[in-house]
């Protein structure tokens, strides 16, 4: 019985994104980080491991630089790491899911935690897609998960507010922002992590037939520049702005 957490390395939210030619210029990204929601997935995966739900493996699919993220995860307590070295930037949702499902099966995990949405793709396809391929129960918008008997109890957002739900293995949790504190590595953790070996594989090693991407990216562009706005001094200008909202913008 194993737990897997899926971590994606993305441009840090503070990093500038430049477009060169017709693609985002990956080489100009100043700082790479773990996608924000994945950090919550990692925190709860550690809590499940500590509650005895199984050993924890961190999985990523990405270029060489993504390995650093796995070492960071080892420093806060994951037991093992799997790095599928591949460039996912032009892959469609089916391709990326087939890689990650193969990686999860390779590790023998039947409980998966991931982010609800990666900060680069802004999609939210991977978790539910994987759950479907694994035949696992899928719980999205999760902000808490805990062991409950042989299964798990989770808190997820619903149209009414929140819901507490129960699931049994196999299952997948896609994390929203949670209210818990994220743990930071201590010196001992960092030293231990240095001794842990990352298992590094290719898609061929996993026996995946990727096929062609069915989504062809035509281009990336910088967002359209907005014409410079109008700026007014003082609360007296509220009258003018309200007038403009009605007459220029036509929105009220």
């Amino acid at each position: 019985m194993k737990i897997a957490v899926l971590l994606k390395q993305v441009p840090d939210t503070t990093a500038k994104i430049a477009v060169s030619g017709d693609r985002v210029d990956q080489s100009s990204v100043a700082k790479w980080s773990t996608s924000p929601y994945d950090e919550y997935a990692l925190e709860y995966a550690l809590q499940l491991k500590e509650a005895g739900a199984g050993d924890l493996v961190a999985i990523t699919c990405g270029p060489d630089r993504a390995a650093k993220m796995l070492t960071d995860a080892a420093a806060v307590g994951v037991d093992s790491m799997l790095h599928v070295v591949a460039d996912t930037t032009e892959m469609d949702s089916k391709q990326i899911q087939s890689i990650l499902v193969a990686a999860i099966n390779h590790c023998g995990a039947d409980v998966v935690l991931c982010g609800k949405q990666a900060a680069d793709t802004n999609s939210g396809s991977t978790g539910p897609g994987i759950a479907s391929l694994m035949g696992a129960a899928c719980v999205g918008m999760v902000s808490e998960v805990a062991v409950e008997g042989d299964g798990f109890s989770a808190l997820r957002a619903s149209s009414m507010g929140n819901e507490r739900v129960s699931v049994s293995r196999p299952c997948l949790f896609a994390f929203d922002k949670a209210s818990t504190e994220l743990r930071r590595p201590n010196v001992k953790g960092i030293m231990m992590a240095k001794r842990k070996v990352i298992e590094t594989v290719s898609t061929d090693d996993l026996g995946i037939n990727l096929g062609e991407s069915q989504v062809n990216i035509d281009s990336h562009d910088s967002p359209p520049e907005k014409p410079p706005g109008q700026k007014f001094e003082g609360a007296d200008s509220v009258h003018t702005v309200v007038l403009k909202l009605r007459e220029e913008a036509n929105v009220i």
């Binding site: 500038k16 900060a119 802004n122 939210g124 989504v215 062809n216 990216i217 990336h220 967002p223």
Partner: peptide
């Protein structure tokens, strides 16, 4: 395949969406 959160679509299944937290716009064909 699935493409999420599109903000534009044209015949021929050309779709537009915002990526990298709104710092780039992606156009793709399906």
């Amino acid at each position: 395949p699935i493409v999420q959160d599109i903000t534009g679509i044209e015949p021929g299944y050309k779709v537009t969406r915002s990526v990298y937290s709104g710092k780039a716009v992606e156009t793709s064909s399906l």
